[in-house]
Amino acid sequence: MVERQSPLEPDFHVGSHGNFEHGVEVILTETRPDSIVQLAAWPGEEKMLIAAIRTVTGLALPDGAGAGVSDGVKSAFGFAPGKFIVAGEAEGLADAFAKVVTPVIGTVTDISHGRTAIRIAGPKAEWVLSKFFAIDFALTAFAVGAGRSTVHHDIFAQIQRTGTDQFDIYVFRSFARSVWKALCRASEEVGYDVQ
C-alpha cells in the first residue's frame, strides 16, 4: 500500500510538552485508520444498514441517535439521522460495504482520504475539549462508544467517545493541522504528550 502522509506531520512533535512538570494529563495522537466510510440509509432502511455494519465489521451497533461502538480496531457511530461513520485499521472497508449495502438500503461514501482522526485521551481530555465544543462531555451525557456532530467555529467535527477518558475527533483533512495545533495549545496548561 502507498504510505499516506499525515497532514499533521510538520506540527506533530512526539514527546512531552507544555506544563508537564507536574504530570501529563492529556495524550494527543493520530489514530490513522486506513478506512473511514460514511454510510447513509434511505428512510426506513436504518435497521438494514445497522445489520450491514454488523455483517462487514462484526460490530453490534446499538440503535438510537448518536449510538456507537468500538472494539479498539474498528469503530462505528451514528452522526445524523440514518447516517453512520465506520472506521477501521484495514484498507478496503468501502469496497466491503459496497457489496452489502445495496442501492435499496442506502449509500456508501469512502472518506478515508478526506478525514483525519485525532485522538485525545487522559484525565483532562474532557476539560480540554470543553474549551472547543459547546456540548456536554460528561460520561453520564456522552456514553462510551457514542458519537456527536458539532463544530468548532466553522470547522465540522464528528466526535466518538472510545473510552471513559478518550475521544476520537474526525475532522476534514484540510483543517486537521489547524485543529491539531489548537488542541496542542489548549493542552499546554495541563501538560500533554504527543505519541
Binding site: A41, E46, L49, A67, A141
Partner: peptide
C-alpha cells in the same frame, strides 16, 4: 421537517436529561 421513521433517529435516553 422530513420524517425519519427509523429508530436510528431517536435520541438516546441520556440526551433527554
Amino acid at each position: 421537517v422530513r420524517g425519519h421513521h427509523g429508530s436510528a433517529s431517536r435520541p438516546e435516553a441520556e440526551d433527554r436529561s
